[in-house]
């Protein structure tokens, strides 16, 4: 994991011929009702392509996390549709939803969401248990994954015994354990220092390049602009614009179109 990897070449993309893996149509999410209604998303139409690494950027409170929860089928929209490989999420039964969350989508949360009382290895093997993998097999695969994120030696540590970066890496290992096709990350580097943040990003790039996993990454971290394929700007619950990374001018202090 070298820092130089941060300058990965963007994959040339052409929206017309790339297959869409996640599509949202008129996505609206509001909280509360009556006068107290606040809109977190006000009609988002977005398409995310198979195998791409897309960064979702926007100021705080613009609705990134809400968008993340919606396309991850973790919360239900107030209006609009979410299609994952052209299948409407709203039409899935509880059992199918569990299947989808367990094996097709990996989640990396802003606050890690590890299970407090489990060791690193157990945290990684939990989703495999849900997928019906035998305990020994799950243990073997879990150790391999921890090796991938460089934590093999610390498999027996509990979350409180690990630094934020280490916890985040455990979360990445956990998100990968059932070979998901999509990896959703909500500010994976927000709580990390520069170096560990870079390590985490490196891992994500590798996962994207080597395993051809589609990655959607909500973030404030501008380093992502160097490694992603596309950037989706969100503001006030709406998609402001979507850009190819190649077209974005990265300058110090002033980035992209954001003032």
């Amino acid at each position: 994991m070298k820092l130089t990897q941060l300058d990965a070449k963007p994959t040339p993309t052409n929206p017309a011929d790339k297959p869409v893996i996640i599509r949202t149509l008129g996505l609206i999410k509001s909280y509360g009702r009556g006068d107290a209604t606040t809109y977190a998303l006000r009609g988002v139409d977005a398409a995310i392509f198979r195998g791409e690494f897309i960064a979702v950027l926007g100021p705080s409170g613009s609705g990134k996390s809400t968008f993340f929860n919606m396309i991850g089928a973790l919360d239900s929209p107030s209006q609009g549709r979410i299609l994952i490989d052209e299948v409407d999420v709203a039409q899935l039964s509880a059992v199918e939803l569990a299947f989808l969350r367990c094996r097709k989508i990996g989640y990396i949360f802003q606050s890690y969401n590890l299970i407090r009382y489990m060791t690193a290895l157990e945290n990684v093997t939990v989703p495999m248990a849900f997928a019906g993998v035998a305990p020994e097999e799950a243990r073997r695969r879990g150790l391999d994954l921890l090796d991938l994120v460089g934590l093999k030696e610390r498999w027996f540590h509990r979350p409180i015994e690990m630094s934020g970066g280490q916890q985040q890496r455990v979360a990445i290992a956990r998100s990968m354990c059932n070979q998901p096709r999509i990896l959703l990350c909500d500010e994976p580097t927000a709580n990390l220092d520069l170096k560990t943040g870079a390590e985490v990003l490196n891992i994500l790039v590798r996962i994207n390049k080597e395993r051809k996993v589609t990655i959607v990454c909500a973030t404030h971290d501008h380093r992502l602009l160097n490694i992603c394929d596309r950037i989706m700007w969100i503001r006030d619950g709406k998609v402001e614009r979507v850009e190819e990374r190649a077209n974005v001018k990265v300058t110090i202090g002033r980035i992209g179109g954001e003032a």
Binding site: D85, V87, V95, E96, F99, F130, A131, I182
Partner: peptide, 11 residues
């Protein structure tokens, strides 16, 4: 690449 096929989760 294979499309995502959704099945029933094991119990």
């Amino acid at each position: 690449m294979k499309p995502i096929v959704v099945k029933d989760q094991v119990r």
